[in-house]
């Protein structure tokens, strides 16, 4: 949280039209995650689409009853996304080239520097020391900028609630498990250890080790290691990421990097504009009484009517 507090401090001071501008722009986009943050390595080559993770998530997070049973595999006919009723979904992707279809679990990737968090104007999101991106529904206003900002289209919103609609997304089972050092429910139920739980730094090593040991099984890319400044959930795959619905065009910069050019400009405007325009005013009205006087002047003019 330190960094966020730092940003906060900088912007507050910026809003007060004072110092702190250069340091803020330096800080933006340089956060690489907490050292002891946990993560999940998703080895999509192991996934057979049993949907147990979906069931476990549903029970753990006390989500509403699903539309179809969790062992109904007809859901793979279409591509699904996370919803207010499902924090995680598994999709099937045709890999082509005579390869078997690939399955990929989809949930919040718990970015190191999350777009949702940086876009939230009430600071409802928190990146915990353990690596989870959690959400405080009590202060959420419901602007849904986080949903716009999420490059993975993860947060859902309980639109159907008239009086307490909130954002619904995977929270890494933070309150019930991660906080106590336990893996999330989906990891625990996964029969084939598609999901490996561990320190993010270790998982990166393990992933590259797997690629090195069985190069035929994987393409040489760990999605999420660098993407968007790094995510806590990372993906190994037999096919290029875009074949399993992972956007490769997101780049390695966190979302906030795109915004920093504007944020960097804010304190400048706040400090320079008043002087600049007051100066313009003095110039434009220099040949007569300036300031408040000119109003009385124009009033007199008007008054002649």
């Amino acid at each position: 949280m330190k960094r966020r507090d730092f940003l906060k401090g900088c912007l507050i001071s910026g809003a007060a039209a004072s110092l702190g501008v250069p340091s803020k722009s330096l800080a933006v986009g340089s956060f690489e995650g907490y050292p002891d943050a946990m993560g999940i390595l998703v080895d999509t080559t192991r996934c057979v689409g049993c949907r147990s993770c979906e069931a476990a998530c549903n029970k753990e997070q006390k989500l509403p009853e699903p539309d179809v049973p969790f062992d109904d595999l007809s859901v793979f006919e279409e591509k699904r996304r996370t919803t207010e009723k499902a924090y995680t979904v598994v999709n099937r992707y045709e890999a082509g080239d005579g390869k078997d279809p690939q399955f990929r679990k989809m949930q919040c990737n718990h970015c190191n520097e999350p777009g949702c968090l940086t876009s939230c104007f009430v600071n409802a999101y928190t990146k915990t020391r353990e690596g989870a991106v959690i959400y405080d529904s009590k202060i959420c206003v419901g602007c849904r900028t986080c949903m716009v900002a999420c490059p993975f289209n993860i947060p859902a919103y309980s639109y159907s609630s008239a009086f307490n609609p909130v954002v619904k997304k995977c929270i890494f089972c933070y309150h019930t498990r991660l906080k106590y050092g336990k893996p999330p429910a989906c990891v625990e139920i996964c029969p084939r250890e598609v999901l490996t739980f561990g320190l993010r730094s270790d998982l990166i090593k393990i992933a590259h080790e797997r690629i090195r040991e069985t190069p035929d099984r994987y393409i040489d890319h760990l999605y999420g290691e660098k993407e968007l400044g790094g995510t806590s959930w990372m993906y190994l795959a037999a096919v290029p990421p875009e074949k399993i619905g992972l956007d490769e065009t997101v780049g390695n910069e966190p979302i906030i990097s795109n915004v920093k050019e504007f944020l960097g400009m804010v304190p400048m405007v706040l400090t320079i504009w008043p002087a600049l325009f007051t100066g313009f005013h003095l110039l434009a009205t220099r040949n007569k009484d300036h300031g408040a006087d000119h109003h009385t002047h124009s009033e007199q003019e008007d008054g002649k009517k």
Binding site: N58, K59, E65, P66, V68, P69, F70, D71, T83
Partner: peptide, 19 residues
């Protein structure tokens, strides 16, 4: 746990949602 068999969800009318 899997909402299967006797625990299968009652068929609800499909709601046309774009979400």
């Amino acid at each position: 746990f899997y909402n299967s068999g006797e625990f299968a969800p009652k068929k609800k009318p499909a709601k046309g949602s774009h979400g």
